[in-house]
Amino acid sequence: MQISEDVHNYMETLVGQALAQPEFSDRFDDDQLADMACIALNQLKPVYIRHDVDFLSSLPESRLVALKNSALTALDVAKEMIINDPRSNRADVPAVFTKPEFDEDKELEWYETPILPRNTKR
Rank of each mutant, 00 (worst) to 15 (best):
D54L: 15
E101M: 11
D103T: 08
E101T: 13
L64H: 13
E112I: 07
T98I: 04
P100M: 09
P46I: 09
Q32D: 14
K45F: 01
A40L: 07
N42L: 03
D31E: 13
S88Y: 00
K99I: 02
P114M: 08
V53W: 04
T98F: 06
L108C: 10
A34N: 10
D76C: 03
F28N: 03
N42I: 02
D52W: 02
S88W: 01
L44W: 06
Y48F: 14
D26N: 15
L67I: 02
W110I: 12
D35N: 13
P94K: 14
K68I: 06
E61D: 08
A78G: 05
E23P: 00
D105A: 12
K106I: 12
D92H: 10
L64Y: 09
D103S: 09
Y48N: 08
I115L: 14
R90Y: 07
L75K: 05
I49H: 03
A37K: 12
I49A: 02
K79E: 14
L33F: 00
N42K: 07
S25H: 13
N69V: 11
D30E: 12
D31F: 11
L56A: 02
F97H: 11
A37P: 00
A71T: 05
K45E: 14
R63H: 14
V65Y: 06
A34F: 03
M81I: 11
Q32T: 04
D54E: 13
V47G: 00
A78Y: 02
W110G: 04
S62H: 13
V93A: 10
A66E: 15
S58I: 05
S62N: 08
Y48C: 04
K45W: 05
D26Q: 08
A91F: 09
F97C: 07
P94F: 05
A66G: 11
R63E: 15
I82R: 05
P86C: 04
R90M: 14
V77W: 06
L67N: 01
P114G: 08
L108D: 12
K45I: 09
S25L: 10
L59T: 14
D29Q: 11
R27P: 00
P86T: 02
R63D: 13
C38M: 14
D30S: 10
L59D: 02
L72A: 10
A78W: 01
V96R: 09
A71K: 01
D30L: 14
S62F: 10
R27H: 08
R87K: 12
S88G: 00
P60G: 01
I115D: 05
E61N: 09
A74W: 01
L75M: 03
S58T: 11
V77A: 06
T98S: 00
A34E: 11
S70H: 06
I83V: 15
K79P: 03
E80A: 15
